[in-house]
Amino acid sequence: MQGRRVGARAGESRASLYEEITSKIIAELEAGRVPWVRPWGTQAAKAQLALPRNGATGRPYSGINVLILWGAVIERGLTGQSWLTFRQALSLGGHVRKGERGVSVVYADRFVPSDERQRASAVGEEAQAIPFLKRFTVFNTGQCDGLPDDVATVAPLPPPGRIEPLVETLIANSGVDFRIGGDRAFYAPAEDFVQVPPPAVFFEPINWHRTALHELAHASGHASRLNRDLTGRFGSRKYAFEELIAEIAAAFSCAALGIVPTVRHADYLGCWLDVLREDNRAIVRAASQASRVADYLLGLVPNATCFPQPDAPDHAPA
C-alpha cells in the first residue's frame, strides 16, 4: 500500500511539472511570443545565438530544456549560453554568487518498477517502463565567479559565407529528393520529396535555407529515416503536432548553424495552442522529437565539430 502511495505522489509530481512547463509555453504563445524563436542579435538578447550547453561537460541541452534555458537567457538578460549545477560550479573551482536565482530544467527517462518486473515475469509478458520527469536547478556561468575562462566559452559560429554551403551540404547528404521550383514549399510524404521555390523569390537569401531546413525536418519523419507518424490531414491535431515538431527542429538546427530562427507557420498558432491545452505533455514530446530531428539533420554535415552530441537523459520520453 505504501508503494502505491509513493507511486501516486510521484505521478502527481510529474503531472504538475508537465502542467507548469505547458502553462508557461501557452502563456508565451498567447502573448504573441514564440518560445523557439528569440530576438537574437538585438538589444533584448545579450547572449550569442547558440544551443545552451553544460559548461562542465560541454554537451548541449536538448528538448524542452532548450526552450526553458533560451527563455531564461532573454527574460533575465543573461550574457551566455553555458550552464552549471551548483556542485559543478564548485568542482570547477568557482561558485554561484550569493543571491543568484537558478533555473529549473528537467531530467526525463523511463524506469521499470520492481513489482512490474515481477508481474511481467509471472505472466510471461514484457515489463512496461514508466516515464519519469524530475527537475533540477542550473545556473548560468554569468551568475558564477571564479570559473576557468574556457568554461563559459561558446563554440564560434561558422564564419560569414560558410553557413549557406553547410546547409547545401546537408541537403545533398540527406538523400531526400529535393526539388527547386513552384510557388510554395512543402514535403510530400507519400512520394517522399521536398519542394522549395527558387532562392530568388525569397526576400532574404537565408530565408531559403531556413525554409529548406523546415521541410527537411518533415522529411526526416519518413519511415526510412526517423519514422514518425505523418498521416495527419491538414487542419487536424496530428498535422498541427507534426508542424510543431518541424518548427522547433528547424529552430534548433538554425541555431546550431548560426542562422537566427524565424517562425515559418505563424498561422498555426491557434492549432498549437489547442494541442497544448488538450495535452499537457505535448510540448515536451514535440521538443524531444525536435531534438532528435535536429541531431539527425546536423549529423549530415561532415566534420561538424561545432555540433557536439547532446546528453541522452535530456531527451524527454515520447
Score class of each variant (00 low, 15 high):
residue 45 A to C: 14
residue 54 N to L: 05
residue 46 K to C: 02
residue 95 H to E: 15
residue 132 F to R: 09
residue 44 A to P: 00
residue 71 G to I: 05
residue 69 L to H: 02
residue 138 V to R: 06
residue 94 G to V: 09
residue 128 Q to S: 11
residue 129 A to M: 11
residue 63 G to N: 03
residue 119 R to F: 09
residue 82 S to A: 15
residue 59 R to N: 03
residue 69 L to R: 01
residue 78 L to T: 00
residue 131 P to Y: 06
residue 140 N to D: 05
residue 109 D to C: 09
residue 136 F to H: 11
residue 63 G to R: 00
residue 90 L to N: 14
residue 45 A to H: 05
residue 76 R to E: 08
residue 60 P to V: 01
residue 55 G to F: 06
residue 124 G to H: 10
residue 111 F to R: 13
residue 88 Q to Y: 04
residue 131 P to M: 09
residue 78 L to V: 01
residue 95 H to P: 00
residue 117 R to M: 15
residue 117 R to I: 14
residue 79 T to P: 05
residue 99 G to L: 10
residue 96 V to S: 03
residue 109 D to P: 12
residue 51 L to K: 00
residue 74 I to M: 10
residue 105 V to L: 08
residue 140 N to F: 04
residue 56 A to Y: 13
residue 99 G to S: 13
residue 129 A to F: 13
residue 63 G to L: 07
residue 132 F to Y: 15
residue 74 I to W: 02
residue 111 F to A: 12
residue 137 T to I: 11
residue 46 K to P: 05
residue 113 P to K: 02
residue 95 H to G: 14
residue 62 S to Q: 07
residue 90 L to G: 10
residue 70 W to D: 02
residue 118 Q to I: 15
residue 123 V to H: 12
residue 47 A to W: 00
residue 88 Q to D: 06
residue 84 L to T: 06
residue 44 A to T: 10
residue 110 R to Q: 14
residue 136 F to N: 03
residue 73 V to S: 00
residue 137 T to L: 08
residue 66 V to K: 01
residue 126 E to F: 09
residue 57 T to Y: 06
residue 86 F to G: 06
residue 117 R to L: 14
residue 80 G to F: 02
residue 119 R to N: 08
residue 71 G to F: 09
residue 99 G to Q: 14
residue 59 R to F: 07
residue 98 K to F: 08
residue 119 R to Q: 12
residue 94 G to L: 04
residue 109 D to W: 15
residue 112 V to W: 08
residue 84 L to E: 04
residue 118 Q to V: 15
residue 118 Q to E: 15
residue 114 S to I: 13
residue 71 G to D: 10
residue 98 K to Q: 13
residue 70 W to L: 02
residue 121 S to T: 13
residue 69 L to T: 01
residue 125 E to C: 09
residue 87 R to F: 08
residue 47 A to G: 01
residue 107 Y to Q: 07
residue 131 P to I: 01
residue 126 E to D: 13
residue 112 V to I: 15
residue 91 S to Q: 14
residue 50 A to C: 10
residue 51 L to A: 04
residue 44 A to H: 11
residue 111 F to L: 13
residue 47 A to E: 01
residue 110 R to W: 11
residue 58 G to A: 09
residue 65 N to S: 10
residue 45 A to K: 03
residue 96 V to Q: 03
residue 62 S to V: 06
residue 103 V to R: 01
residue 140 N to E: 02
residue 56 A to Q: 12
residue 82 S to N: 12
residue 116 E to D: 07
residue 129 A to H: 12
residue 73 V to M: 04
residue 68 I to F: 07
residue 52 P to M: 00
residue 74 I to C: 05
